[in-house]
Design a protein around this nucleic acid. Structure first.
Ligand SMILES: [Mn+2]
Ligand SMILES: [Mn+2]
Ligand SMILES: [Mn+2]
Ligand SMILES: [Mn+2]
Lengths: 225, 225
DNA sequence: ACCTAGAGTTTGAGTCGTCAAACTCATGCG
DNA sequence: CGCATGAGTTTGACGACTCAAACTCTAGGT
């Protein structure tokens, strides 16, 4: 029930690492890396989570949240993403800085403040990066989308989500006119160089590595080329 | 510089206790009580503050913040009161609940968020309880006011500040129509019972103990009785 | 001048979260 | 197979914060 700030961070990290990992299991080392902590530290915390029935784990294996742990993680994720939305929509901060701010604020938001915030923002479904905001009951509505890297030359698409939370990535995208909701077209692809050239609607052409492009999710748009 | 959440709480508590105390010194016991901690715990933390040049203290004496400590305390107080103002003005929470919420949020507000919040709120000078919000440079503008308990029968006044942060006190005042900015008149005083009878403009008469009334600050208004 | 009640301090111990370094396991390569 | 490599775990230690209980000082009465 009363998870410490540290426990909250672990739960959220495990949840997110678990989402990525193929096996649906979070390797302890990945969790440790996500939190900037040594593997040994993560191991001992995982034991605590297991004792609290928030996670399951077997020696030398991966971690997996229990339903209870998942529920708690979604609650934290909800706070995190609502706070990000508030910082951008109400306070006007840039989407490249809100992640770090929310990382601290998420732990200080009571259910009462959370609900008032949610109402004030008009019960948004997505945060500034296009990440779905889990609902109060724990439901998450992931949006249908594909990596921009899978588009072909000439394809049009709408940007729906940015997975990379790094400040410089987000600043680059904003400066290029690539924000959530923007439409764009793939001008060219250079597989040898590992680069795609993208033109946002009403903007100028920019080059991105396909790796970077794979962390930008889009929904294809009937091409009127 | 980088004070922990705990240190921030001590600095704020010492500042506030110091404001109350006659000698301008905060008794360690009072600080401990304000933080809900044992006296021994407070003693050891005070030593840390002294080592960090945030406070001065001599054995068996009181604590006093250094200029550096005072500056830090005012910064925390600024965060606290701006957050309270936000919770009431923007999110619509009741003034009786925001103190506890701000007690946690104040530690998670970065300078950037603080400034955005300040701008969003229109750079307010007072919080919902009428407490002055220290400015970014550390200036505090205490408002001229006297305890309501010092009014005489028939006197009119405007409510400018409520010192008591207790939820039930604040709920009682709100329910009586006694909020910051309201005008009121003293209907009667019963020194024997230690009670005053107050009529808020446009409201019905309420009784309050003079002790409670002494924590409500007012500015007298030219009586048109 | 005492002496004691109350305020403050010290001590010893515990929890939480962390690290470095030694150790153990699982595996896949030779 | 056999074993080196890397992932994960254990151990011992530490800093920050806290408490209970023993101890010490100060100040006010008498
Ligand atoms: Mn966090
Ligand atoms: Mn986000
Ligand atoms: Mn606080
Ligand atoms: Mn206040």
């Amino acid at each position: 029930m009363l998870a410490s700030e540290t426990v909250e961070n672990y739960l959220k990290a495990i949840y997110l690492v678990q989402r990525e990992a193929a096996a649906g299991e979070a390797p302890v080392g990945k969790v440790a890396a996500a939190l900037g902590v040594t593997a040994g530290t993560a191991t001992s915390m995982v034991k605590k989570l297991v004792a609290a029935k928030l996670a399951r784990h077997e020696r030398f294996g991966g971690v997996r949240l229990t339903p209870k742990g998942t529920r708690a993680a979604l609650d934290i994720l909800r706070r995190h993403r609502l706070v990000e939305t508030f910082l951008v929509d109400t306070l006007g901060l840039d989407w490249s800085v809100v992640h770090d701010e929310a990382e601290r604020l998420e732990h200080a938001i009571s259910p009462m403040v959370l609900d008032a915030l949610d109402r004030h923002l008009g019960r948004p479904a997505f945060d500034p990066h296009g990440d779905p905001i889990p609902r109060a009951d724990g439901a998450v509505q992931e949006s249908e989308a594909m990596p921009m890297s899978e588009l072909g030359a000439g394809d049009g698409a709408r940007l729906v989500r940015v997975l990379d939370q790094r400040g410089d990535s987000l600043r680059f995208l904003r400066a290029s006119g690539l924000k959530v909701g923007a439409t764009l077209r793939v001008v060219a692809i250079e597989p040898g160089a590992g680069v795609m050239r993208i033109r946002p609607d009403g903007g100028t052409v920019v080059s991105m590595s396909t790796t970077a492009a794979s962390r930008v999710l889009v929904r294809p748009v009937r091409g009127r080329d």
